[in-house]
Design a protein around this nucleic acid. Structure first.
Lengths: 125, 125, 125, 125
DNA sequence: GCAAACTGTCCCGGGC
DNA sequence: GCCCGGGACAGTTTGC
C-alpha cells in the first residue's frame, strides 16, 4: 500500500489520469539525448557559431569564479554592517550616509532645496 | 546550399557534431507527451493533490487579469509623472516627496537627526 | 535621573559632546522657514517654473490615489496565490508558468534549444 | 535684467513668492550647526551609544573599500560576458545556465516535472 | 531620449 | 518570535 505524495490530473475532457509519483514526473520529462549530426551538411555556406565545449566551459568557470569572489566581498560587507550595528550604529542611516558620499554635494543640496520648496507648497514645513 | 545560421558543437572528447539549424534544436527538445496513468494505483493511501485543468486555469486567468489591471494602473502613474514633468516639476524630487508622505513623520525626523549627527562626526557639515 | 536612550559624539579633535536625546536631535535639524520673496526681481526675463501649491497637490494626490489602487490589486494577486497554494498548487511553479505564457512561444523554444546545446557541451545532460 | 532659471511659488493662500534662484534655495536649506552639549546631563543613567568619529569613519571606509572591490569584480564579470558574446554565445542563455548549475539538480528536475504537468493541464504542450 | 541592464530596497515565506 | 534568504519592485545608470 503506497504512502507517498502523488498527483492526479483532470484533463479538459473530464478524464482523470494518475496518480503520479514525483519520480514518475521526473522520468517523463524528456531530455535532449543523442542529437545526431548531419555530416553531409554543407557547413561552408553557413554562419556557424562554434559551440566548443572547452571554450564554453572556460567562460562559465571564469564567471563562476568571479561570482564566488563577489559573494566573498558581499559577505565581508555584511560583517562590517553587523559590527557597526553591534556598536550601536543605525545601519539604515549608515547606508544612506554612504550613498550620500558617493554623490556630488552640489546635486544633493540642489535636490534638497527643491524638496523644501515642494514641501513648503504643500504645507509640510 | 544552405544559407542560414547554424551551430556546431565540439564535445569533450574532441569530436564535432552538427551543424544544427534552430529548427533541429527545437525538434530535439523533448516534451512530456502521453503520460500514462496507473489505474491499479491505490489512491486511497496517498495525499493526492488534484491538478484539475479547470481549476488551474481559473487561478491563472484570475491572476493574469489582475496583472493587466496592475499594468493599467502603472501606466496611469507614468502619465501623471509625465504631465508633472511637462509642467516643470522635478519628478525625482516628486517621488521622494511622495515617499516621505508615506512614512511616519516622527521616524523621518529621527532618521534625519541621526544622519546629521553622523555627518557632523565625519566633518560633512 | 533620566532614563532614556541618548547619544554622545566624539569629534575629530577628541572632544566629546552630548549626550543628546532624540528630541534634541530633532530640534536641531533646521527646516527651511520663511523664504523671503524679492518683489523687485524682473520675472519677465526668466524661465520661471511655477510651483503652484494647488497644481502640485493635484499631481501628488492623483499619484497617491493610483498607488492605493495598485496596492489593492497587489493584495488581490496575493489572495489568488494563497488560494492556489491552499488547493495544493506549487506557487513558485505557477509564477513560472504565468511568466512563460507572457513570452512569445517561439522565443521560448529557441532559448530552450540553445540551453540544451550548452548543457550537452558541458556534459550536463 | 536677470537671465537665469528661477522658481516662483504660489502658496495655499493664493499669494506668490519668489522668484528664487537655485542659490537662494541652497542657502535657505538650514544645516545642523553647533549642537550644544548638556554637560550637566546625567549620562550614567542612560544607554548612551557612543558615536565616535574615528570609529564611524572606520566602518564607513572599510565598507567603501569593499564596495570598490565589488565593483572591480563586477567589471570583470561584465568583461567575461562581453567576450563570450563576441565569441557568438547567447549571454542570456549563459546566465540561465550558470543559474541552473547553482541549484540542486534534484530540485530542478522536480520543478520542471511539475511545470510540465501544469502545462499539460492547460493544453500548452 | 528611450530602453535595457544592474543595483539597492522591500516584502514575503520558511526555518530555528 | 525573530532572523534569514529569495523574489519582486523601484531607482539608477549606461548604451543605442
Amino acid at each position: 500500500m503506497p504512502d507517498e505524495t502523488t498527483m492526479t490530473m483532470t484533463l479538459p475532457d473530464g478524464t482523470t489520469t494518475g496518480p503520479f509519483t514525483l519520480d514518475d514526473l521526473k522520468a517523463a520529462t524528456g531530455k535532449l539525448k543523442g542529437m545526431k549530426a548531419d555530416p553531409d551538411f554543407d557547413a561552408a555556406a553557413t554562419t556557424a557559431y562554434r559551440v566548443t565545449a572547452a571554450e564554453l566551459r572556460q567562460f562559465i568557470e571564469r564567471y563562476e569564479r568571479l561570482e564566488q569572489d563577489r559573494a566573498g566581498v558581499a559577505e565581508d560587507m555584511k560583517e562590517v554592517m553587523a559590527e557597526a550595528k553591534a556598536s550601536g550604529y543605525d545601519t539604515k542611516v549608515l547606508r544612506k550616509l554612504i550613498a550620500l558620499r558617493k554623490k556630488d554635494p552640489a546635486d544633493v543640496s540642489e535636490e534638497e532645496a527643491i524638496l523644501e520648496v515642494y514641501k513648503a507648497a504643500l504645507g509640510m514645513d
